[in-house]
């Protein structure tokens, strides 16, 4: 138990949890404003893309190990600790973010078709996809830079994802009912999680850490 506690402290879990709470609070505030009479409900899509991205960046950064190879000598299974840490954080943040977009009631004057369908589902899909992307990046370029790849991907989304016939690989911008976007997000998550859990993240000199 002590080992698990020390492991979580080395991953800055209290800091990560606090930052995730700030992200959730900011998401809730933005969603309330967007669904108010002075807001633009169509822009909820922006929240559904950026809030999971922010959470994914935090999770990606929290995969960093300050001990490097030394950590490998622990008598406990390191992959199991990593799995508990990452899935635990994800289970903490996912309901929180879903609540932030599901709880604000849109203004009565807003027509329902102006609000994306099933925002909580879109939030969940984008969260697991973005987290998977961040984990893959952490494995490839290290935890400190793990946020750069998902952020770059999301920033180029507006150029390719507009309109109903937007590019299919722009999965975070697809509606909740789009099966392909769910498949991409799930594959990203499973592969990213497996990579980080089994092999850890890359250190700055490219060695696994």
């Amino acid at each position: 138990m002590r080992l698990a506690r020390l492991y979580l402290r080395s991953r800055l879990i209290p800091h990560a949890t606090a930052v995730l709470a700030v992200v959730a609070l900011a998401t809730w505030g933005t969603a309330c404003w967007i669904l108010s009479p002075s807001g633009t409900p169509e822009r909820l899509v922006v929240v559904l893309v950026f809030a999971p991205l922010a959470a994914a960046c935090v999770l990606g950064a929290s995969t960093h190990s300050p001990f490097g190879d030394t950590e490998r000598v622990v008598p406990y299974s390191l992959p199991l600790l990593r799995l508990g840490h990452l899935v635990g954080l994800l289970l903490l943040v996912a309901p929180l973010l879903c609540l932030t977009v599901a709880s604000p009631q849109p203004d009565a004057k807003i027509m329902p078709d102006r609000i994306p369908d099933y925002p909580a589902l879109v939030m969940t899909r984008n969260l697991i996809g973005s987290v998977g992307f961040a984990f893959l990046a952490a494995r490839a370029v290290g935890a400190y830079l793990s946020w750069t790849l998902p952020v770059t991907f999301v920033l180029i989304l507006p150029l390719v994802a507009g309109g109903t016939g937007g590019m299919r690989w722009a999965w975070p911008a697809q509606p909740a009912t789009d099966g392909l976007s769910w498949a991409i997000a799930l594959v990203l998550f499973v592969v990213g999680l497996a990579a980080v859990v089994l092999w850890g993240t890359a250190t700055q000199d490219g060695e696994p850490g």
């Binding site: 990560a16 960046c57 946020w147």
Partner: peptide, 10 residues
């Protein structure tokens, strides 16, 4: 801190 860069960027 390791969380500062991504948090600041977003």
């Amino acid at each position: 801190g390791r969380l500062v860069a991504p948090f600041f960027a977003i």
